[in-house]
């Protein structure tokens, strides 16, 4: 029997990410944990979920293992469609991608995400990040945005320093419509300690699930804005031994992203 002590934070994120993906969808994946989560979903409940990799491939077969990045040659193995980066973003602009699966450095209660800088100003930032990459356009034009981030107060902020990837903006009901984007917007935020969704009426972030042993109050303490707590809030599901085996031996055997630690039993 697997207990939460057997599962490291990255495995928890990857497994939770996998759980939220539906079969027969098209997932536009970012590098790292989104790829691992999607591979796990394909190996379990979503064999017909197909991936778009930003370097331009659609529905490749990941039989050579985890692509190290979205531009890895492995991400193109036996794809059915392989054009360039612009071509896959054109697909999203035509409405053909169900999920944007992205990361970021900060998120606010309306699901706006910053991956540009933290602290200071745009011109003189305290820490400058690599930049939008594909995330900005993915969050705009894929139907649902799933974000992955570590649960920390400095990341779950009242106001992001820079909106790199559009969420629900200032929360106005027509913010996205006015922006002319294709997708419905933020759908899930996945962390090692909690799974968040968004309240339909207010478009604010809502706690759906928390790590076994934690509590909604403990999660709130790690978030700088007021969370809505789902009426049916519950504990997160823990991966089974089979799930862990898949994550550790099929999805990321070198532990490049999962960085699993050896658990002494």
């Amino acid at each position: 029997m697997v207990t939460i002590a057997d599962v490291n934070p990255f495995e928890m994120i990857a497994y939770t990410g996998s759980r939220v993906l539906e079969d027969n969808t098209i997932i536009f994946v970012g590098t790292g944990l989104p790829i691992i989560a999607s591979m796990h979903a394909q190996l379990t409940h979503a064999p017909n979920a197909n991936l778009i990799f930003e370097a331009g491939s659609l529905a490749s077969m990941l039989e050579q293992g985890m692509p190290m990045s979205v531009g890895d040659t492995r991400a193109f193995r036996k794809a059915v469609f392989a054009k360039g980066l612009c071509a896959v973003f054109e697909l999203t602009q035509r409405g053909y991608s169900d999920y944007a699966f992205i990361g970021g450095a900060q998120v606010d209660m309306y699901g706006n995400i910053c991956s540009t800088y933290e602290g200071g100003t745009y011109a003189v930032p305290r820490v400058r990040f690599p930049g939008s990459g594909g995330a900005g356009a993915m969050a705009a034009n894929c139907e649902k945005t799933i974000a992955i981030m570590a649960l920390e107060k400095r990341r779950f902020v009242k106001k992001v320093d820079f909106i790199t990837s559009i969420g629900f903006g200032d929360g106005a009901p027509d913010y996205r419509e006015k922006a002319g984007v294709m997708g419905a917007g933020p759908y899930r935020v996945i962390t090692n300690q909690a799974l968040f969704g968004f309240d339909k009426d207010t478009r604010r972030m809502m706690l759906l699930e928390y790590l076994p042993g934690k509590s909604p109050e403990a999660i709130q303490d790690l978030v700088d804005f007021e969370l809505i707590i789902a009426p049916d809030v519950k504990e997160m599901a823990i991966p089974t031994e089979h799930d862990l085996m898949l994550l550790r031996t099929k999805c990321d055997p070198e532990g490049f992203f999962l960085k699993r630690k050896i658990v002494d039993k």
Binding site: E54, G84, L85, C86, F89, T92, Q93, S132, G133, G134, A135, G136, A137, A139, A140, N141, I163, T164, S165, I166, G169, Y175, R176, K178, A179, G180, V181, M182
Partner: peptide, 27 residues
Amino acid sequence: SNFGATTALLAGFLGIPFVPVRGNIGT
């Protein structure tokens, strides 16, 4: 963003001054 950037390159490729692209308003 990557889409914005490749669209900027596409506009150059097409020999026209700019290309409309969705996904920047609101950011």
